[in-house]
Design a protein around this nucleic acid. Structure first.
Lengths: 349, 349
DNA sequence: TTTAGGATTGTGAGCGTTCACAAAAATGTG
DNA sequence: CACATTTTTGTGAACGCTCACAATCCTAAA
C-alpha cells in the first residue's frame, strides 16, 4: 500500500540483461538493436509496466514531449467571462490534444497578453520553465515578430496559425479570402444581387481578407458597387443589431447578408425577425464561424466552418516531426467547409 | 543569434555570491534567508532573467508544478466529432488554467476511457510519465474507485468533481438536487401545476439526483404524481423530439418542461414550435446546462448554470495547496445559478 | 567570557534519462 | 585466416535542481 518504488530504465535493463542505453534505444525506436534483444526488452517493459519519466527524458536529452499552445489572454478571458465560451480554444484542445496523444506528446495551454510590451518576456518565462519542443502561436500572436524571433533565438520550433505569408517557419492557415468568395458565390448562384458583408473589425487581418473575397466575388458576378456593400460591425450582438436595423428597414435592403462571426449572424436573425422579415424567404444569412450553438438557432445557420481543430492538429504534427530532426517549415492551407443549413435560399422577388 | 546558453541556478548563485542551495531557498520561498541576501539574489534573478527549469525541479525534488485533468475519452470525442463542441472542457480549461497560473502551475488535459478494463492502466501510464502533483477526476471517472485507489497508492492527490459523498479525498460538487428543486420551485411559483422533467440518462448519477429534486419539490408543492412526470431522453435532439411530440400534442400536456441538458431543451423548443405552442406563453422551458449558444436560441433559454469553471478552479487550488504539504481532503459545494432568460412565464389558463 | 542553541549558509549526492564516445561482436573481403 | 568494416552494446558524464546533512555564523544566557 505504501508508495511503490518507481520502475526506472535501470530496472528494465536489469530484467532484460542489457544496459540502460540499449533500453533507451528501444524506447526511442533507435536503430541498431538486434530484433531478439529488442523483443526481450519490450517484454520486460511490458512486464514491469515501465513508463519513461518525462522530466528525466527532458533532463537527459533535448526533448520535452510537450507542445505549448499560446492564446491571447485578453480576448480569451473576455470570452470566458462574458459567458460566451471559447469555441476556438475548445477546438484547439481537440485538434491539439488528439494529435499530441498519437505521438506520446502533451499539450499545454498558456495565455499571453498580445501586444503588451512584456509579451516576449512572458513567453520567455514560459518556455524557460517548460522548454516545450514546439510552440503554436494563434492570432494575434502569429503576427508578432518579437515572439517569433524570440522562439528562433531559443531554437524552439514554432507554428503560426492564420499566417499565410511564407516566413520560413510553419505557416498554417485557411483560405479566408476563398471562403468568403465561396459563400458569396453560393448566394449569387441562388440569385441574390444585393448583398451586404458585415465585417468584424477592420484591424483584424482575416476580416480584411474576407471583405476582399466578398468584393472580388461580387465583382466577378457583375454586381455593382451598390449591390455589394460592406458594413462595419464589432463582432458583438447589440452594436450589430443597431447598425443593421436601419439597413433592413430601408426600401432597397439587401437580400443576403454575410456576417463575420456567429454573434453578428444571430443579431441579423434577431433584427430580421423584428422587422418581420422571414429567413430565408425574405433574407439569406451566412455566418463565418460556426460555433456549436449555431445548429440550434432558428433557423439553423448556414456557415463557413473554420477548420480550427485541423489547423492545430497539423501544427502539432509538424512541430512534433521537427522535434525529431526534420526542419520545421512550410505553408499549409487547411480546407474550410461551407455548411449548408437553413438560412439561405433564393431572394424574394 | 545562436542559442543562448541557458541561465541556471548556478549562474544566479555565482552572480549573487552565494551557493545554489541558498538561491533554491529563495525560489521556493523557504525560511532562513537573511533579508539582505534574499534581496541580492532576487536582484540577480531579475537581472539574469532566470527562470527555474521545471523538469530539473521535478527531478531534484518532489514537485512537478503540474495538475492533470482527466476526462472521459468517449464522451469528449463524441461531442467534438459531432460538432457539438465541449463547453464542459472549455470551462475546465478556463477555471483550471487561470487558477494554476496564479500559482505557477500548469494544467494538462488527458483522455481516459471510462469504464474500460484498462482505464487504471491508462491513468497509470500518464501519471508515471507526467508525475503530476494532483489529478482532477471528472464524471464519470470521479466515481471510479479503481482510479482513486491507484492515485492513493501512488501518493498523488486527487480531486473528484461531482462527487458528493465524503470520501476522505477532495470532493467538489454542486447541489444538483437543490438546483432541480430551485428550477422546479421557480416554475411552481409561476403557477405551473403540470410539469415534466426530461431526464438524460438514468445511469447518470446527476440525472438521478435532479429527478429526485424535481420530485421532491413538486411533492412539497402538493402536486400530484400525474402533474409531475419524468420522461427518459438520451441527451440528444432527435430522440428527445420524437419522445416529446406526442406529449405536447396530447390534451393534458404539461405547461412546463425541465430538460436535463441544452440539446434536449432546444429539442423542446423545436417541437413546441412545430405544435404551434408559443414559448413561454404556452409552455415554459428550463435547461440544465447553459452552454454559450443558449443565449441565442429563440427565445433565449432560462437555465441552471453549472459552475464548472469554479469547480475546477477550486479543485486546482486545493490540489496545489496539498502539494505544499497540507493534506488534501474535504467537501466543497460550489454554488450554481438559475439564469433567467426568456423561456419561463406563467402557464396558459 | 564562554558556550549552548538557533539561524543561516554550503556541500555532496542523487533524481532518471540521453549524449558522446569507447568497446565488443558480427560480418564481409581478399 | 587475418584484417577492415559495420553493427551492436556498454560506460562515464551531464542535464539543473532539491534533499539531507554538515558547517558556519550569530545571539544571548550562564
Amino acid at each position: 500500500m505504501n508508495a511503490r518504488k518507481t520502475v526506472t530504465i535501470e530496472d528494465v535493463a536489469l530484467a532484460a540483461g542489457v544496459s540502460r542505453q540499449t533500453v533507451s534505444r528501444v524506447i526511442n525506436r533507435g536503430p541498431n538493436v538486434k530484433p531478439a534483444v529488442r523483443e526481450r526488452i519490450d517484454a520486460a517493459i511490458e512486464r514491469l509496466g515501465y513508463v519513461p519519466n518525462l522530466s528525466a527524458r527532458r533532463m537527459g536529452g533535448g526533448k520535452s514531449f510537450m507542445i505549448l499552445a499560446i492564446n491571447d489572454r485578453q480576448r480569451t478571458l473576455e470570452n470566458w467571462e462574458a459567458g460566451r465560451g471559447n469555441d476556438w480554444v475548445d477546438q484547439m484542445l481537440f485538434g491539439g490534444m488528439t494529435e499530441c496523444e498519437k505521438h506520446g506528446y502533451h499539450l499545454v495551454f498558456e495565455l499571453i497578453d498580445a501586444g503588451a510590451d512584456d509579451a516576449p518576456r512572458q513567453l520567455s518565462r514560459v518556455i524557460a520553465s517548460l522548454r516545450p519542443d514546439g510552440v503554436v502561436l494563434t492570432p494575434p500572436h502569429s503576427d508578432d515578430q518579437a515572439l517569433v524571433s524570440l522562439l528562433d533565438e531559443r531554437g524552439i520550433a514554432c507554428a503560426r496559425i492564420g499566417q499565410r505569408e511564407p516566413s520560413g517557419h510553419l505557416d498554417i492557415f485557411m483560405d479566408e479570402r476563398g471562403a468568403a468568395m465561396e459563400a458569396t458565390r453560393h448566394l449569387v448562384e441562388l440569385g441574390h444581387r444585393r448583398l451586404t458583408f458585415i465585417a468584424g473589425s477592420p484591424g483584424y487581418g482575416n476580416s480584411r481578407r474576407r471583405v476582399e473575397g466578398f468584393q472580388s466575388a461580387t465583382r466577378a458576378a457583375g454586381i455593382s458597387k451598390d449591390g455589394a456593400t460592406v458594413l462595419d460591425g464589432d463582432f458583438h450582438f447589440s452594436t450589430t443589431a443597431a447598425v443593421l436595423e436601419p439597413l433592413l428597414k430601408s426600401r432597397v435592403r439587401p437580400t443576403a447578408i454575410i456576417a463575420d462571426n456567429d454573434e453578428m449572424a444571430f443579431a441579423t436573425l434577431h433584427v430580421a425577425d423584428r422587422c418581420g422579415i422571414e429567413v430565408p424567404r425574405g433574407l439569406s444569412v451566412i455566418s463565418f464561424e460556426d460555433t456549436p450553438g449555431v445548429r440550434f438557432s432558428v433557423p439553423p445557420l448556414t456557415a463557413i466552418r473554420q477548420p480550427t481543430a485541423r489547423m492545430i492538429a497539423c501544427a502539432c504534427e509538424k512541430l512534433i516531426e521537427s522535434a525529431s530532426g526534420k526542419r520545421a517549415a512550410g505553408s499549409f492551407e487547411i480546407p474550410h467547409e461551407l455548411i449548408m443549413r437553413a438560412t439561405t435560399g433564393p431572394p424574394p422577388r
